Amino acid sequence: MLEQINHIGFGLILAIIIYIILRFIFPKSQENRSIENQSTISTDTEHKIKDLELQCQRLREELKQQSQQLKTDLQVETFTQLQTLLCNYPTVKKMALIKPDLPAKNLVSLFTSLDNLITSWGYTVIGEIWEQVNYNPQLHQADSDDIQEGELVYIRFIGYQDGVTVLYPAKVSRTLPAGFDNN
């Protein structure tokens, strides 16, 4: 669909360039032509200009409709992939508030849809929870300003990237949370 939008955008630009060229080649008044030729050329030019204006208007409307369709398709696809989580979350939230001793491991399966969505988008995670790594400021966000590049740190919260583009850096710290170890 993005390729279609690119084609429409190219067509729109092409129509504008043709319009400008026609206006330059066939100005409304030409001193060296007879009034009869001038009238014929002006009429032809006006028809061509009108046609180009109509085509530009049509292309703008198509682009607007395709943009709305892309937005709708993305929302439907994302909702479909997250449907299980979205439908169960309110119940799980209520259960957690009423019964705070509910084991969290019973809730883990709800997040499978999020994992599937991230995978379908082609995103990759930066690090694993509590993994010890060398600090890289391009991939990590330190919890302290004095952490130096290459220093050993623990990943507290994973990050995400799309190819080489970091979408969200992994949050790192020199220590693990109290009461946890790396085993």
Rank of each mutant, 00 (worst) to 15 (best):
M1R: 07
E3T: 08
E3H: 11
I8N: 05
G9F: 11
I13N: 12
I16W: 06
I18T: 10
R23M: 07
F24T: 11
I25K: 08
F26G: 01
F26C: 13
R33W: 15
R33A: 03
I35Q: 15
N37D: 15
Q38L: 08
S39G: 05
S42H: 09
S42A: 08
E46N: 15
H47F: 14
K50V: 04
D51G: 12
D51S: 14
L52T: 02
L52S: 08
E53L: 14
E53Q: 15
L59N: 06
K64T: 12
Q65M: 11
S67A: 11
Q68Y: 08
Q68I: 12
L70E: 14
D73N: 14
L74A: 15
L74M: 08
Q75L: 13
E77N: 13
T84Q: 12
T84F: 09
C87K: 15
C87V: 07
N88H: 11
N88V: 01
T91L: 14
V92W: 04
M95W: 08
L97A: 15
I98W: 05
P100R: 01
L102D: 01
N106H: 11
V108A: 12
L110P: 00
F111N: 04
T112F: 00
S113I: 05
S113A: 11
L114Y: 06
D115R: 09
T119L: 10
T119R: 14
W121D: 03
Y123D: 02
G127Y: 03
G127N: 03
I129Q: 15
Q132G: 00
N134W: 00
Y135A: 05
N136M: 00
P137S: 14
L139I: 01
A142H: 02
G150M: 01
E151L: 02
L152K: 15
V153R: 04
V153H: 03
I155A: 00
I158K: 11
I158Q: 11
Y160T: 00
D162P: 00
G163M: 00
G163A: 00
T165G: 01
L167Q: 09
P169K: 13
K171Y: 06
K171Q: 08
K171H: 07
T175H: 11
A178D: 11
D181W: 05
D181I: 03
N182S: 12
